[in-house]
């Protein structure tokens, strides 16, 4: 079984995943969610555009070694991303009802879903993202209508939150996610070259950045960031997002569906990207074997506690810088080589 994805499904899948990852990363996955996360999402999207643009050059001028190295980088990022998403799913399930269930048991359905999802292949994931885009819009509309009386726009101010440094730090993290998830374009079946491919990158970045910013702003208007800056527990972070307490509880079902739906699509996209890259790096492996390997690795990472470690937080902070630096070096060397050849 060959794992592959066509351009349009890849764009939709990556768009859904980017929005979900940035929203999770700057709200629930953040131990001290700050103000102005919505601004960071927008800046992050803008920062990621040149790097995603440069991805095309990596495969053109970088040669096989550079391409393989970059595949490895995106594979590692996608794998850890899948693990983080699986941990998010397990935490959410624990928060909502299953707090007495062992984490391994909580991860099982997510792992099986991931395996099933990867073996359906890339186009199915993309088609699912297309349908999800419509459902998402409908569910979000319902959520906004239900929660409308409880939004407090004034909680978005001061506009820069904790200050430029926090905004910039979060923007760099967001840009890292945009860049790693955007890697699915460049390493898809027919490559990422061409004008339409670049336009798709720009459009997807803009759309996912806008969606993530909107979601973060809505979240901030419903539950203000805490000034203490102390690390908040999973319980409180999910409390602020899912049940919140300011709206009637029985109206929270659309929000929960929205949350799980976003996480599953994110898991599918990241898991598939990891499996596809694994197969590209080891072409003899069957797609199902790659799917199994990715599922096992992501589950193991999620269970190991690595997803909540400081090391991972540090790596995520610098993944954008790593991607941008790598692209810049490859592009510069390629450019020099081109000049020498000329």
């Amino acid at each position: 079984m060959k794992l592959r994805v066509s351009p349009k499904p890849a764009a939709f899948s990556a768009c859904a995943a980017m929005a979900a990852r940035v929203f999770c990363g700057l709200s629930v996955d953040c131990v001290s969610p700050g103000y102005a996360a919505w601004l960071s999402a927008i800046i992050g999207a803008a920062l990621s555009v040149p790097v995603l643009w440069m991805y095309g050059h990596v495969s053109v001028v970088g040669g096989r070694t550079a391409r393989t190295a970059f595949q490895g980088f995106i594979l590692a990022a996608s794998l850890t991303g899948s693990a983080v998403t699986m941990a998010d799913i397990a935490h959410s399930a624990g928060y909502l009802a299953l707090d007495r269930v062992a984490p391994a048991v909580l991860l099982l359905p997510a792992a099986l879903a991931l395996f099933w999802c990867i073996t359906r292949n890339g186009d199915s994931i993309g088609y699912a993202a297309m349908i999800w885009a419509r459902l998402f819009a409908l569910l979000l509309l319902i959520v906004v209508i239900l929660q409308f009386p409880y939004y407090r726009p004034e909680w978005l101010r001061p506009i820069l939150g904790s200050g430029w440094s926090t905004v910039a730090r979060n923007a760099v993290r967001a840009a890292g996610w945009f860049c790693t998830i955007g890697g699915i374009w460049i390493f898809r079946e027919d490559g990422g070259e061409g004008r339409s491919g670049k336009n798709a990158i720009l459009l997807s970045c803009a759309v996912s950045g806008a969606i993530a910013a909107l979601l973060l702003a809505l979240h901030a208007m419903l539950a203000p960031a805490f000034y203490s800056g102390a690390a908040l527990s999973w319980q409180l972070r999910l409390d602020a997002l899912l049940t919140n307490g300011r709206t009637p509880l029985y109206l929270q079902m659309p929000m929960i569906i929205l949350w799980y739906g976003g996480l599953f699509h994110l898991l599918g996209c990241e898991g598939f990207a990891a499996a596809m890259l694994l197969q590209q790096m080891a072409p003899r492996l069957d797609g199902r074997v790659c799917a199994g390997a990715v599922t096992l690795c992501a589950s193991a990472l999620a269970l190991s506690g690595f997803t909540g470690s400081r090391l991972l937080a540090l790596l995520i902070r610098y993944q954008y810088i790593a991607a941008a630096g790598f692209c810049a070096i490859v592009a510069a060397r390629g450019g020099l080589q081109t000049c020498a050849d000329a």
């Binding site: 799913i89 959410s92 399930a93 909502l96 009802a97 299953l98 909580l106 359905p109 997510a110 099986l112 879903a113 099933w116 999802c117 359906r120 292949n121 186009d123 199915s124 994931i125 088609y127 699912a128 349908i131 999800w132 079902m253 929960i256 569906i257 799980y260 739906g261 599953f264 699509h265 599918g268």
Partner: peptide
């Protein structure tokens, strides 16, 4: 069955798998 084992989480997993299934 999934709803009785995992609650809404199970239902969302099933719905997601069904969606992936019909998309494939």
């Amino acid at each position: 069955v999934l709803g009785s084992l995992y609650g809404l989480y199970g239902i969302c997993v099933t719905a997601f798998c069904m969606l992936m299934g019909i998309c494939g």
